[in-house]
Design a protein around this nucleic acid. Structure first.
Lengths: 197, 197
DNA sequence: GTCTATATTTGGATAGAC
DNA sequence: GTCTATCCAAATATAGAC
């Protein structure tokens, strides 16, 4: 009589290879920019021909999409794992700092997720879903910190992504802008107080 | 006896064609993104083969470089043409608004000038010079507005580019973030006052 | 599942005729 | 100054052998 195994070793191996390919892709776009990924280089990096990658991903865009999903999921998980305090403003400080660290630690991922500079690539709804949830989490933190006006979230998001953007573009590897994070949030909170009394 | 003409019609024509090529390149990167410019398309747009472009520019990067120079010059000229008032904060408001308009009116140019997302392209020092001068002008406006700390300029630049970045990435063609410009600058000024007394 | 072989397209760039 | 012809390299993608 045949016995059904509880583990599917073939599927496991396949998933492991997929993960290996994505890790190599992450390395490559870190080296040459998100828009410069080529399947030849990627195949070479994992020890196969470019054509063999099609056994794992349907297209180059499918690889970008998987990276996008991975990236937006990664941030969402970090945000969820964040320890919350009783001070709502401290929570917002921590969450935005998490975001700043997440972005500057991997600028190619930032480019992929937030700058949308890859010609022709649009993330699928599934890949995008975690980002939406993370924004919703942030929105609630902003409300708890006294920012009930929707404009407040937009202003904060501009402020924080501005720090990240300037850091990556004009002082890569440094901290000229990221070190302004605390001051920036204090400025934002002062503004909320002045605005809503 | 030979007469020396005061105008060089050949040089004029050449310069006009160069300008025409750059204008077409601007159109193309506006349509497909800055990283997706191809010489074939560009040639077709101006009615010549791709190879003929080499009579006008030494390489593709030379075209990017000319566009970069044109772009940074354009902003510098607009900033210089700005009418100054006696209120230093009003001046800073106007100058940053000039910048916001400049960026959102042509997002491909923004990508070229500030996001540096074109694989392998680095602007030449000559092309970059106007940008440096524009930053210096802004720095002086920030100082006049009460931001004597170098961190103040960095904070402001993050705030303004953040508005632009979010606008272009998340609401292209709209005004969800640019309309926050006045509020953002008020927030910044409140902060300067709270900081320096 | 990975390979070779190949199709197809597209890119940047050079040589030389006119 | 523009063209044809061509080169060379690289890209994505497919077909079929093993």
């Amino acid at each position: 009589m045949s016995v059904t195994p509880t583990r599917d070793r073939r599927a496991e191996r396949r998933e492991a290879t997929r993960a290996e390919i994505l890790a190599a892709a992450t390395d490559l776009i870190g080296e040459h920019g998100a828009a410069a990924l080529s399947l030849r280089d990627l195949g070479a990096r994992v020890g196969m021909r470019a054509q063999s990658l099609y056994s794992y991903f349907a297209s180059k865009d499918a690889i970008y999409d998987a990276l996008f999903h991975q990236g937006s999921n990664e941030f969402l998980e970090r945000a969820r794992a964040m320890t919350l305090t009783e001070d709502p403003r401290e929570n917002l400080r921590r969450c935005t700092w998490l975001f700043v660290e997440f972005c500057v630690e991997d600028s190619a991922r930032y480019q992929l997720l937030f700058q949308r500079t890859i010609p022709g690539f649009e993330p699928s709804p599934e890949a995008f879903a975690p980002s939406i949830e993370a924004v919703e989490m942030t929105r609630q933190l902003v409300v708890a910190a006294g920012g009930d006006d929707p404009r407040d979230l937009d202003l904060l998001s501009a402020l924080v992504t501005g720090l990240v953007d300037q850091q990556i573009s004009n002082d890569p590897g440094g901290d000229r802008w990221t070190r302004l994070h605390t001051e920036a949030l204090d400025m934002f909170f002062e503004h909320l107080d002045a605005k809503h009394g």
